[in-house]
C-alpha cells in the first residue's frame, strides 16, 4: 500500500517537473526582457512589452499546470478514452535511451561533416540511424548507406544546386572526384 502511494508521489513530481522548468525559464526570460536596452521615447511601450505579455501568460499557465499536476486535478474520463484511442496511432515509448543515442549521433554527424565531407560522414550516420531503427542486416545496411549518401549528394548538388560540405584533405579528394563524376563544378 505504501509503495503504491510512493509511486503516486513520484509520478506527481514527474508530472510537475516540466511546469517548474517552464516557470524557471519564464522568470529568467522576464528578467531579461525587463532589461532590454533601447532609447525610451515618451508614452510609447518598449520592445519588451510584447515578450513580457507572452511571458506573463506562460508563467500563469505553468503555475496552473504545476498546481494541477501536483494536486492531480482535471483528469477526466474523456481524457482516459482519448488516451486509449491514441495508442492506436502512437505506440508507447519503449526505448527512451535510443532517442538520446540518436541525438548524440546527430551531433557527432554535424561535428564530423566539415572534416569528412558530406559523402563519407553521411554513410556513417545513415548506417548508425538504420542500426538504431532496428535494421541490423550489416551488408544491406552498408550498401543502403552508400546509396543514400550518393543519392542525396546527387539530388542536392546536381538538381537543387546546394554546396554540400566537401571536407578537408585528404577526404575532400573523394568529394571532388564524386562531384566530377556527377558533372558538378
Amino acid at each position: 500500500m505504501s509503495s503504491g502511494k510512493a509511486v503516486t508521489v513520484l509520478e506527481r513530481c514527474r508530472a510537475t517537473l516540466p511546469y517548474l522548468v517552464v516557470l524557471a525559464a519564464g522568470a529568467y526570460l522576464y528578467y531579461t526582457a525587463e532589461n532590454f536596452e533601447f532609447e525610451q521615447s515618451s508614452g510609447r511601450i518598449g520592445p519588451g512589452a510584447w515578450p513580457k505579455l507572452i511571458l506573463v501568460l506562460m508563467l500563469a499557465s505553468a503555475l496552473w499546470g504545476a498546481v494541477s499536476s501536483a494536486l492531480q486535478i482535471g483528469k477526466s474520463d474523456a481524457i482516459a478514452d482519448a488516451d486509449e484511442m491514441e495508442t492506436l496511432v502512437r505506440p508507447p515509448e519503449i526505448y527512451p535511451w535510443l532517442v538520446w543515442v540518436a541525438v548524440a549521433a546527430t551531433v557527432g554527424y554535424l561535428l564530423i561533416l566539415p572534416v569528412l565531407g558530406f559523402f563519407l560522414a553521411t554513410i556513417v550516420y545513415a548506417f548508425v540511424l538504420m542500426y538504431l531503427g532496428h535494421y541490423r542486416r550489416f551488408v544491406p545496411a552498408v550498401l543502403l548507406s552508400v546509396a543514400i549518401a550518393f543519392a542525396f549528394m546527387f539530388m542536392f548538388m546536381r538538381v537543387v544546386y546546394v554546396a554540400l560540405p566537401v571536407g578537408v584533405a585528404p577526404f575532400d579528394r573523394l568529394s571532388y572526384a564524386l562531384m566530377a563524376a556527377m558533372g558538378v563544378h
Binding site: 561533416l113 545513415a126 532496428h134 554546396a163
Partner: peptide, 23 residues
C-alpha cells in the same frame, strides 16, 4: 522503418542546410 527514418532525417538536415547553405 529503420531505412525510412534514415532517409527522412537526411531530408530534414540537408533540406534545412539547403535554405541558406549554413551549418
Amino acid at each position: 522503418q529503420g531505412v525510412l527514418s534514415a532517409i527522412v532525417v537526411m531530408f530534414c538536415l540537408v533540406g534545412a542546410y539547403a535554405n541558406r547553405n549554413d551549418m
